[in-house]
Computed example of a mutant assay.
Amino acid sequence: MGNVGFFSNAFFGFILVFLTLCHISRQFGSYKYLLVNFQVLGFIFATFEYLFHTFLHTYNASLIYFSFSRPLGLSNFTMEWMMGIYTGLYSATICQLAIQFIYRYWALFDTPKIKYFHGWYYLIWVSYYSFFGVLWAFAVGHFFAMDDFGREYLGGEILLRYERNITDIPVLGLIAYEGNSIRWRNVYGLSLMTLISTIQYSIILICGQIMYEGMRIKLSLLSAQSRRLHKQFFRALVIQITAPTIILFCPVFFMIYAPFADLEISFPSCIIQSGFTVYPAIDSIIMMSCVSEYGRALKKVYRNAKKFCAVKIPKDVSKDVVGANVITTKL
């Protein structure tokens, strides 16, 4: 599934970035930087999955995160931090969606603040999603690192289900309990992840609610083209955050908190995880489907390509060919 996610994101992401930068950048203004940045980050996210092939497995009071790959001969310790960075990229994508909601909110209700998306000010937003991405990666890589108890608790399960020794593969794990006590180390990591998600979703919900309630009045003051673009971008953002939240993010957070129920269960969670590999590509499709400018630009590119590839035979050459055919027939 990682291969599908990588190549589908490379294909659809390239189309969206190409159309945004080469054909419709004027209509989007500084918003184009957010769109391109989101696609680039999504491609890096899919590349990590393609290289490291990570897996999730739920077992009783734990959630196991591991990989059988070892690109470039990396050590288990390095691989575990690479896996942590991979989850940090997921956090950064959620942060970027929150930033897009802030942009759309300011574009409608506080236009002068759009200047903070121009020039060096844009580094503010790069620092924003980078900070939370690093914080999330640290939470996973540090607080979910294996100790002696974790290896003893999970070693038999990994050997039974995957026929691998836990000491031979990079493994991270959230284990809720150690005997009758809560493993606070894992709780600290989970709390950081929950805090980061809560901040981003709060921004999304607040900006989205205000835009929904006040959009009708504000849009009436804009030109027809600007009004259409704002509506389409808002619709795309709502779908971009609603669909993956219901299909992907909610199930994942259920899996993360499930260990605290201490259920006697054991099943691979790769089906849910596989959705993350294709999510960036799905996001590109959502944006191009909701914003009509992409459809028009794509049709224009197709027409130009068709004209370029069409073979035009000069009239005099055509006559010579016809004449040669006649002579050949007579002979």
Rank of each mutant, 00 (worst) to 15 (best):
V126W: 13
V126P: 00
S127A: 15
S127T: 13
S130V: 13
F132Y: 13
V134S: 09
L135R: 09
W136G: 09
A137P: 01
F138C: 03
A139Q: 01
V140R: 03
V140Q: 01
G141E: 02
G141Q: 04
G141W: 07
F143M: 10
F143S: 07
A145I: 10
A145V: 12
M146R: 00
M146H: 01
M146I: 11
D147I: 00
D147Q: 04
D148R: 02
D148G: 04
D148E: 12
F149V: 05
G150W: 02
R151G: 10
E152L: 09
L154I: 15
G156Y: 07
G156V: 09
L159A: 12
L159V: 01
R161I: 02
E163N: 15
E163I: 02
E163M: 02
R164M: 08
R164V: 06
D168R: 06
I169Y: 11
I169P: 04
P170E: 08
L172W: 02
L172Y: 05
L172R: 00
L174Y: 02
I175P: 01
A176Q: 00
A176S: 01
Y177K: 12
G179M: 04
N180E: 10
N180D: 11
R183G: 01
N186F: 10
N186C: 14
V187L: 11
L192W: 14
L192R: 05
M193P: 07
T194W: 08
I196V: 14
S197T: 13
Q200S: 11
Y201W: 10
I204R: 05
I204F: 08
I204T: 02
I206V: 13
I206A: 12
C207D: 08
G208H: 05
I210G: 01
M211W: 07
Y212C: 06
Y212K: 12
Y212A: 12
K218F: 12
L219Y: 12
L219H: 04
S220R: 15
S220F: 05
L221Q: 15
L221D: 11
S223E: 09
Q225G: 08
Q225V: 15
S226N: 15
S226C: 08
R227K: 12
R227C: 10
R227E: 13
R228T: 15
